[in-house]
Design a protein around this nucleic acid. Structure first.
Lengths: 150, 150
DNA sequence: ATATGTGCAAATTCTTTGCATTAGA
DNA sequence: TCTAATGCAAAGAATTTGCACATAT
């Protein structure tokens, strides 16, 4: 069962998490969660906002919603080395990594993860609540043909 | 031989790279490289600027120098999930990863790296010039005692 | 000598905040 | 009903750009 692709169970689970945290299940939060669950992402704030049916909510609300959703672990922030942040659904459960093209910034998902074992090493250094981020960068096949791909 | 700590060879090597790229060896570029080599970093733009003897150069110049140094691979950009970018010396040669405290943002260096093998997998997908970033996050021993560390 | 790099100022973009209003539990 | 969330406007940061001047080669 792949982590992404339409999955109503994910949505219901998310609502549960919101309820448990005593957060309100508002229109903007639902819309954002649906987009993050159904389209793969990760998306920047603007991309997310643009994808909502226009007038759905203010950009500021997207900022605030994502901050809250990140706090309760429903959303994960990705940083791909270009200075901007992108967001995708899922905390620990939907664990995976990415391959980012250094030219066109296209993002592919990589389901493999051999890094969990290393977290023990970090815990041994006295850290708690340990997580990690692993991203790969490269030039994709299509960009390789571009003149810029010196 | 650890990757950091005063190392004149690093500095000379950096100058060589600049020359090879036909970039000028200016005061600001030298100052920035020295700081990045001698103090461990990684540093944000402001931190770096503040560390230079005052009046040494403009903040804008720090921005421009780091962009250039990143282009030629002398500097690596680190993003630790808080939206800001930090910079440290070294490309592939000075390869290592970090542990970042989720509360105080303190950064520790981790010299171990078991991920290089995974890069083949990415190359097999058609990517070239493959690199990766691996960061660990957790709450450090000191922060653990803070009330915020719920 | 001359092309590159820098300083300063200003534009642009990104993100956050205050407060009146609305909507969810 | 009553608190939490949103919209709008505006403030505040962070980053980029233009152009005249300075400086490495």
């Amino acid at each position: 069962m792949s982590a992404h692709h339409h999955h109503p169970a994910d949505f219901d689970h998310a609502l549960g998490v919101l309820r448990k945290s005593r957060l309100k299940i508002t229109q903007p939060r639902q819309a954002i969660l649906k987009i993050l669950i159904e389209e793969h992402g990760p998306f920047t704030m603007e991309e997310l906002h643009r994808r909502m049916k226009k007038g759905a909510c203010d950009l500021v609300t997207v900022y605030r919603c994502l901050a809250t959703l990140e706090d309760v672990g429903l959303v994960r922030r990705c940083e791909f080395g270009d200075g901007s942040s992108r967001y995708e659904f899922g905390g620990r459960e939907h664990h995976h990594h990415h391959i980012v093209c250094k030219l066109c910034r296209k993002v592919e998902t990589l389901d493999i993860c051999l890094v969990e074992g290393l977290e023990r090493l970090v815990r041994d250094k006295g850290y708690t609540q340990v997580t990690h981020a692993l991203e790969f960068f490269g030039i994709c096949a299509r960009c390789r043909k571009l003149p810029a791909a010196a």
